[in-house]
């Protein structure tokens, strides 16, 4: 019997598979497809202090090996999430829940975290959303910006604090270190890569927002490389995220240094993706003679 469990910042997960924020809502829609309790955890839809409609449509553009999105953090706001969405999720899901929060100023991040943190098991701080025009990624592309938000939130966050970093930077290692120094407990690597598509018949961008975040299988090697680099330069546990489609890639990400692995875009084309990956894991572990998943975290030199 193989051991799939991992310990993420002091929180035990029965397995490392976590649907990524923004690809799973608050679980209600996916619960129509399967019992969510097979998952390690769920990172819920990015939440801001105030409700947001997000960007105009089209918000989605397909690409080779993935898609671009420019949803722009549509969400019903922290109070509604706390009053309605999280209690509904807790009723159907008995595993740890990750609250994903975003903001447009350090104060807003702090207030959002203060309201959400008591109702979740871990906080994922999104300082890397490329689709909002102020805030979001602006905080995640400099060491000062990242450290500033982490420090602001740290004082009101009594739950493990994971920071989701942007790959749209020159040196992700320095930003990871800045987050570690500012008091983060973990890192999620990576958010989407900023991209663009043009409708050549109309000669206009496909996305109403012009640019959007690229995700899906195309970004997997980029995510893997960043996990590997950060793992060697910083002590924080890493949640891998980016283009994972199957259990082999989960193993690959863990060997690069991930303690847990988020699955994002794949949920949008196959609602059973996370469940299937959880089910595939024991088989691939047996094949590779891995008894405990924790044995392989960062094993690749």
């Amino acid at each position: 019997m193989v051991d799939l469990s991992v310990n993420l910042c002091g929180v035990k997960l029965q397995n490392p598979i976590i649907p990524a924020s923004g690809t799973f809502g608050f679980g209600a829609e996916m619960a129509e497809y399967y019992d969510l309790n097979v998952l390690g955890s769920i990172s819920v839809k990015g939440t801001t202090l105030h409700p947001r409609f997000g960007n105009p449509t089209p918000r989605i553009a397909e690409s080779e090996g993935g898609l671009l999105n420019a949803v722009g953090l549509q969400n019903p706001g922290a109070d509604h999430v706390v009053a309605e969405e999280l209690p509904a999720l807790r009723r159907r899901f008995r595993q740890p829940v990750i609250g994903n929060i975003c903001g447009f100023s350090a104060d807003e991040y702090r207030e959002c975290c203060r309201r959400v943190a008591p109702h979740v098991d871990l906080i994922e701080l999104n300082i890397s959303c490329p689709n909002v025009h102020e805030g979001g990624m602006a905080f995640g592309t400099s060491c000062e910006g990242a450290a500033g938000v982490v420090s602001a939130v740290r004082s009101v966050c009594d739950k493990p604090l994971i920071v989701k970093l942007s790959p749209n930077v020159t040196d992700i290692v320095s930003i990871a270190r800045a987050c570690e120094d500012a008091g983060a407990d973990g890192l999620t690597l990576i958010n989407t890569l900023l991209g663009m598509r043009i409708d050549i018949r109309r000669r206009t961008p496909i996305l109403a927002n012009t640019t959007g975040g690229l995700s899906g299988p195309a970004v997997f090697p980029v995510a893997l490389r960043m996990i590997y680099q950060v793992r060697r330069a910083c002590h924080l546990p890493i949640v891998g995220c980016g283009g994972v489609q199957n259990a082999e890639q989960v193993i690959e990400m863990m060997m690069a240094g991930a303690t847990a692995v988020q699955v994002g875009s794949e949920n949008l084309r196959n609602p059973f993706a996370c469940k299937e990956i959880v089910e595939q894991l024991p088989e691939i572990m047996n094949e590779l003679k891995i008894n405990k998943l924790t044995d392989i975290i960062g094993i690749t030199e």
């Binding site: 129509e32 989605i60 898609l67 999105n69 549509q74």
Partner: peptide, 14 residues
């Protein structure tokens, strides 16, 4: 609408 998922999780078609 141009959709991402078609089952309500991506917010692409709001």
């Amino acid at each position: 609408a141009r959709m991402g998922c078609g089952y309500g999780v991506c917010m692409g078609c709001s």
